[in-house]
Write a protein that binds this DNA or RNA. Structure first.
Length: 148
DNA sequence: GCCAACGTTGGC
DNA sequence: GCCAACGTTGGC
Protein backbone atom coordinates (compact mmCIF):
# COMPACT_ATOMS: atom_id res chain seq x y z
CA UNK A 1 0.00 0.00 0.00
CA UNK A 2 1.22 3.43 -0.83
CA UNK A 3 1.74 5.84 1.94
CA UNK A 4 0.01 9.04 1.01
CA UNK A 5 0.82 11.16 4.02
CA UNK A 6 3.84 13.34 3.53
CA UNK A 7 6.38 13.84 6.23
CA UNK A 8 5.46 16.64 8.58
CA UNK A 9 7.01 19.96 7.82
CA UNK A 10 8.77 22.06 10.41
CA UNK A 11 8.37 25.75 11.12
CA UNK A 12 9.37 28.51 13.46
CA UNK A 13 6.87 31.12 14.54
CA UNK A 14 7.67 34.31 16.39
CA UNK A 15 5.63 36.15 18.92
CA UNK A 16 6.41 38.86 21.40
CA UNK A 17 5.83 37.24 24.79
CA UNK A 18 4.44 40.39 26.36
CA UNK A 19 1.72 40.29 23.72
CA UNK A 20 1.25 36.56 23.32
CA UNK A 21 3.71 34.13 24.82
CA UNK A 22 4.09 30.39 25.28
CA UNK A 23 2.27 30.46 28.60
CA UNK A 24 -0.70 32.18 26.98
CA UNK A 25 -0.93 29.39 24.42
CA UNK A 26 -0.70 26.71 27.10
CA UNK A 27 -3.42 28.41 29.09
CA UNK A 28 -5.71 28.66 26.08
CA UNK A 29 -4.95 25.10 24.92
CA UNK A 30 -5.31 26.25 21.32
CA UNK A 31 -4.45 29.52 19.63
CA UNK A 32 -5.05 31.13 16.26
CA UNK A 33 -1.93 32.41 14.54
CA UNK A 34 -3.24 35.48 12.77
CA UNK A 35 -2.28 39.05 12.03
CA UNK A 36 0.61 38.08 9.74
CA UNK A 37 1.01 40.77 7.10
CA UNK A 38 4.11 39.72 5.27
CA UNK A 39 3.82 37.84 2.02
CA UNK A 40 6.61 35.36 2.59
CA UNK A 41 5.35 34.61 6.09
CA UNK A 42 1.83 34.26 4.73
CA UNK A 43 3.06 31.89 2.07
CA UNK A 44 4.60 29.76 4.80
CA UNK A 45 1.31 29.79 6.68
CA UNK A 46 -0.53 28.59 3.57
CA UNK A 47 1.99 25.83 3.06
CA UNK A 48 1.40 24.41 6.53
CA UNK A 49 -0.58 21.24 6.90
CA UNK A 50 -2.42 19.90 9.87
CA UNK A 51 0.02 17.92 11.97
CA UNK A 52 3.06 19.99 11.04
CA UNK A 53 5.24 21.02 13.96
CA UNK A 54 6.56 24.47 14.82
CA UNK A 55 8.91 26.05 17.28
CA UNK A 56 7.48 28.86 19.39
CA UNK A 57 10.03 31.66 19.42
CA UNK A 58 9.90 34.63 21.77
CA UNK A 59 10.96 37.75 19.89
CA UNK A 60 11.92 41.07 21.41
CA UNK A 61 11.93 39.72 24.96
CA UNK A 62 13.73 36.46 25.56
CA UNK A 63 14.97 35.91 22.02
CA UNK A 64 14.73 32.17 22.35
CA UNK A 65 12.86 29.07 21.23
CA UNK A 66 10.73 28.00 24.17
CA UNK A 67 8.47 25.22 23.00
CA UNK A 68 6.99 23.04 20.31
CA UNK A 69 3.50 23.35 18.93
CA UNK A 70 1.44 21.46 16.44
CA UNK A 71 -0.61 22.89 13.61
CA UNK A 72 -4.12 21.84 14.63
CA UNK A 73 -5.93 23.50 11.73
CA UNK A 74 -4.38 24.63 8.47
CA UNK A 75 -5.53 26.70 5.53
CA UNK A 76 -7.62 29.23 7.42
CA UNK A 77 -8.48 32.75 6.38
CA UNK A 78 -7.21 35.29 8.87
CA UNK A 79 -10.25 36.28 10.97
CA UNK A 80 -8.66 39.65 11.70
CA UNK A 81 -8.45 40.55 8.02
CA UNK A 82 -11.54 42.38 6.77
CA UNK A 83 -10.59 41.63 3.17
CA UNK A 84 -10.16 37.93 3.83
CA UNK A 85 -6.93 37.77 1.87
CA UNK A 86 -4.42 36.84 4.55
CA UNK A 87 -3.88 33.37 5.95
CA UNK A 88 -3.94 31.94 9.45
CA UNK A 89 -3.60 28.59 11.22
CA UNK A 90 -4.56 27.16 14.57
CA UNK A 91 -1.90 25.77 16.87
CA UNK A 92 -1.77 23.65 19.99
CA UNK A 93 1.09 23.44 22.45
CA UNK A 94 2.92 20.10 22.37
CA UNK A 95 5.62 20.58 24.94
CA UNK A 96 8.01 23.06 26.36
CA UNK A 97 11.67 22.50 25.61
CA UNK A 98 13.68 21.23 28.54
CA UNK A 99 15.66 24.40 28.17
CA UNK A 100 15.17 27.33 25.84
CA UNK A 101 17.50 27.68 22.87
CA UNK A 102 18.60 31.26 22.53
CA UNK A 103 19.17 33.19 19.35
CA UNK A 104 22.71 33.76 20.53
CA UNK A 105 23.28 30.03 20.71
CA UNK A 106 21.73 29.45 17.31
CA UNK A 107 24.02 32.07 15.81
CA UNK A 108 27.02 30.41 17.42
CA UNK A 109 26.15 27.00 15.98
CA UNK A 110 27.59 26.29 12.53
CA UNK A 111 24.97 23.61 11.83
CA UNK A 112 22.25 26.23 12.21
CA UNK A 113 23.95 29.07 10.41
CA UNK A 114 21.76 28.67 7.35
CA UNK A 115 18.42 28.83 9.14
CA UNK A 116 15.81 31.03 7.58
CA UNK A 117 15.46 32.63 11.01
CA UNK A 118 18.96 34.07 10.65
CA UNK A 119 18.93 34.75 6.95
CA UNK A 120 15.65 36.67 7.11
CA UNK A 121 15.67 38.06 10.60
CA UNK A 122 12.41 39.94 10.28
CA UNK A 123 10.37 37.01 9.05
CA UNK A 124 7.77 36.03 11.64
CA UNK A 125 6.98 32.62 10.17
CA UNK A 126 9.92 30.73 8.74
CA UNK A 127 10.69 27.23 7.61
CA UNK A 128 12.97 24.85 9.51
CA UNK A 129 14.80 22.01 7.80
CA UNK A 130 14.43 18.54 9.34
CA UNK A 131 18.15 18.47 10.12
CA UNK A 132 17.89 21.82 11.89
CA UNK A 133 14.80 20.70 13.78
CA UNK A 134 16.55 17.58 15.06
CA UNK A 135 19.68 19.48 15.92
CA UNK A 136 17.80 21.99 18.04
CA UNK A 137 15.95 19.21 19.84
CA UNK A 138 19.28 17.57 20.63
CA UNK A 139 20.66 20.87 21.88
CA UNK A 140 17.69 21.29 24.20
CA UNK A 141 18.48 17.95 25.81
CA UNK A 142 21.93 19.09 26.79
CA UNK A 143 23.05 21.90 28.97
CA UNK A 144 24.68 24.94 27.54
CA UNK A 145 28.33 24.21 26.91
CA UNK A 146 30.33 25.72 29.70
CA UNK A 147 27.58 25.53 32.31
CA UNK A 148 27.62 22.97 35.04
C1' DG B 1 10.03 50.74 -14.19
C1' DC B 2 13.09 53.22 -11.15
C1' DC B 3 14.09 55.13 -6.80
C1' DA B 4 13.58 58.17 -2.76
C1' DA B 5 10.97 58.52 1.30
C1' DC B 6 8.78 56.45 4.78
C1' DG B 7 7.01 52.71 7.92
C1' DT B 8 7.75 48.35 10.45
C1' DT B 9 10.16 44.59 12.57
C1' DG B 10 13.36 42.98 15.60
C1' DG B 11 18.08 42.66 17.44
C1' DC B 12 21.51 45.19 19.97
C1' DG C 1 16.84 54.44 21.89
C1' DC C 2 19.19 53.33 17.83
C1' DC C 3 19.78 51.20 13.54
C1' DA C 4 19.88 47.54 9.85
C1' DA C 5 17.05 45.08 6.87
C1' DC C 6 13.02 44.87 4.40
C1' DG C 7 8.56 46.16 2.48
C1' DT C 8 5.51 49.62 0.57
C1' DT C 9 4.15 53.81 -1.59
C1' DG C 10 4.15 57.46 -4.73
C1' DG C 11 6.33 60.78 -7.87
C1' DC C 12 8.41 60.95 -12.11
Amino acid sequence: MTKIDAEPQFWLMKSEPDVYGWDDLVEQKEGTWDGVRNHLAARNLRTMKQGDLAFFYHSNIGLEIVGIMKISKAGMTDPTDPDGKWAAVKVKPVKKLKRAITLKEIKATPELADMELLRQSRLSVSGVRPSEWDFILEMAKRKLPGTK
